[in-house]
Amino acid sequence: MTRALRVHATGPLALVQDLGRRGLSGVGVGRSGAADRGALCQVNRALANPVDAAAVEVTFGGLEVEVLDEGLWCCVTGAPCPVRVDGRDVGSHVVFYAEPGARVVLGRPAAGLRSYLGVRGGVTVEEVLGSRASDVLSGVGPAPLAAGDVLPVGGPGKRFPAVDSVAAPDLAAEVVLRAVRGPRDSWVDDVEALVATTWSVTERSNRVGMRLGGAALRPARDQQLPSEGAWRGAVQVPPSGEPVLFLADHPVTGGYPVVAVVVDADVDRAAQLRPGDPVRFRWVEVP
């Protein structure tokens, strides 16, 4: 029997993601992986999968998949959204069984942006450089999902889901991201404006980075910075003065000053912000 899902609709964007490629930035390959790593780990724990098993990252709902020959245990985490199996509401953040031939449909989340459909056994598309993650910046990994794609699912293993549900996040609450001062904080005229401003997520945002609209940060130096290493959570300031917060598919180097770095634990929350959402920053000290 075939353990697999057939894709019938994807919504704005659906990608296969795991925890990404580690240790390859020295050769120009970024880590990529789930934009909200905590949500991916949560869905895998709920389904008794290895924590780094691949799942489907769904941006703003719209995914519809069909379970093929063998029934599958499933769960949806991340942005809470309507989840239906053959038209029956099952909800997100619960473990449910989908019979062979069943259609699983994810609706739009009321808050947040990215939901994760996990299956017991994990999605087992072919690995590229040791990972099944799809990197939208470099094109490394599986292509964005399209109608007609068939996603193989791995064997269930010996462990069995031990929970019926997991905690859903509150993604409607005010977002204040903890940040430490960056190595180039003196390259803007007033770095304190970063924490004094309520920023708005612009439509020019994706898995690479989140561009913020608000009071522009003015440069303090009339010179160009050589390219330096870049990392998830870095806040760069390009000539426009609009900060860019790097997310999962960020480049491995960048030539704009990094004035702050968001605490890694908060980058998952940042990845759930949608265009128009407000966001603020708060300084914290390096431990």
Results as ranks from 00 to 15, higher is better:
A162K: 00
Q223E: 14
G157P: 13
E228V: 12
P144A: 09
L217C: 03
R178Y: 02
Y256A: 11
A146D: 13
A143F: 05
W231M: 15
G141Y: 04
T197L: 02
Q236I: 11
D164R: 14
V150T: 15
L137A: 10
Y256W: 15
V175P: 00
L177F: 11
L217R: 08
G148S: 10
V166L: 04
P183L: 04
A216D: 00
A172K: 01
W231P: 05
V191A: 12
V140M: 08
L145K: 02
G229P: 11
L151T: 01
A248T: 13
H250Q: 10
G255T: 13
V237M: 08
A216R: 15
L151F: 07
S186C: 00
A196W: 02
A260G: 10
F246H: 07
A234S: 08
A215W: 01
A143Q: 14
A147Q: 02
P226W: 04
V244D: 08
P239H: 09
G241A: 05
E242M: 13
G155F: 01
D170G: 05
A162Y: 00
V175K: 13
D266V: 11
V267K: 08
R211M: 12
V235R: 00
A216Y: 06
A173W: 07
Q223I: 02
L212P: 02
A216N: 03
